[in-house]
Design a protein around this nucleic acid. Structure first.
Lengths: 197, 197
DNA sequence: TCAGTTTTTAACTGTCAAGTTAATTTTCGA
DNA sequence: TCGAAAATTAACTTGACAGTTAAAAACTGA
């Protein structure tokens, strides 16, 4: 990778970060390309040099986040031995990542409103892959009789729904840190599945 | 209430419904006043006769929904005797109402992005009142030793987060009905709190 | 029926932002 | 160092939409 290429990659990343931070705050339509640019002391013409249009910029930013999430969960599943530990750690990491990238995730809450066609397909596919991993952990636990019999889809959606909501209510000026919240949530949610109480 | 007044009220309601259905689908900024009007075979001038501006229309629609939610939970708390029954029924009704008014609720997910000033205050106040009711039920259960000791805020947010997510994944063409889903969710979520398993 | 009031409409204005472009400046490898 | 390629910019076009208005139509009560 040449110097030029690396510089371009860096610029793209900066632009994505700027976009995410402003869109996260004001919403996609309420955010202008000029704002995104001027936050980086650029003009919007420059932004259009790196990204074909506003939509593409949004898409790239979401894709990045979802790909990272997938990496995270794969990693956790590889590291841990016991099912219950796998699911617990997956949830902890999920909440922690959500909170460190909260603005980004706030944006992508409703993909079908933001994307269409090929882009929507790709985003939904990444999301599905992620759900799949959670489902597998639940099934594994049920089969190992560590967890109660359960409707996998519903429980998975409860877990994800509860966790994802954290970005709406977590406050940095509260007393609890991100890790603490993540662990508390994971423990509470595990109660839904755990056999021994 | 005169005939005229009732007619006006009816028109306002129709406009709100139209607005909710389109905004729910495409998002607030992506929805035009013309679309809202033409769905009712009106022109947007007419809409402006009933609502001062687009923002006011959005606000009224959200206020209506939240007020209705409050009525619902008050009702449930009055009807039931046992704490656990109160919380369970509150959750069932919550999910059911969410699903019958799903488009409306999808819109209001991020109030701070949609509203500001007095409007935001009012919306947040209604939401807070609702949370308060849930909190009280949790506390009541803990004090009666029906529920585990628990961090009330976190558990309440888990419950609400999980329930509210239902509008994102419930599908009318799945096999389960709204009531069934509502009851399943309530039962799963109660496990977080219940002492006896 | 008809006069006054309410409601609706079409046509208009002003603003704002997405995206384009051609000219200028910067960068970097030979 | 120099020239070609890459990157940046200011100025522009275009279209869309919120909100206005003045005139027309519909309604209503006497």
């Amino acid at each position: 990778m040449s110097l030029r290429e690396r510089k371009t990659a860096k610029k793209k990343k900066e632009i994505i970060q700027s976009a995410v931070s402003i869109i996260g705050e004001k919403g996609y339509h309420a955010t202008t390309m000029e704002e995104i640019a001027s936050k980086l002391l650029m003009t919007k013409g420059s932004v259009y040099y790196y990204f074909k249009d506003k939509q593409e910029l949004l898409f790239q930013s979401q894709k990045l986040l979802l790909e990272q999430s997938l990496e995270n969960i794969k990693e956790v599943i590889k590291e841990k031995e016991i099912v219950q530990e796998k699911l617990r750690e997956a949830m902890v990491v999920h909440v922690e990542f959500l909170l460190t990238e909260s603005t980004g995730f706030e944006i992508g809450a409703k993909p079908e409103q933001l994307f269409s066609g090929k882009q929507l397909e790709e985003i939904l596919s990444l999301r599905n892959q992620y759900s799949q991993y959670i489902d597998e952990l639940i099934i594994e636990g049920v089969e190992a009789q560590v967890f109660h019999e359960a409707d996998v889809k519903i429980v998975r959606n409860i877990l994800l729904g509860a966790m994802n909501s954290v970005i709406e209510w977590y406050s940095t000026d509260g007393q609890k840190g991100k890790q603490e919240i993540a662990e508390l949530m994971a423990d509470y949610l595990l109660r839904i599945l755990k056999r021994d109480c």
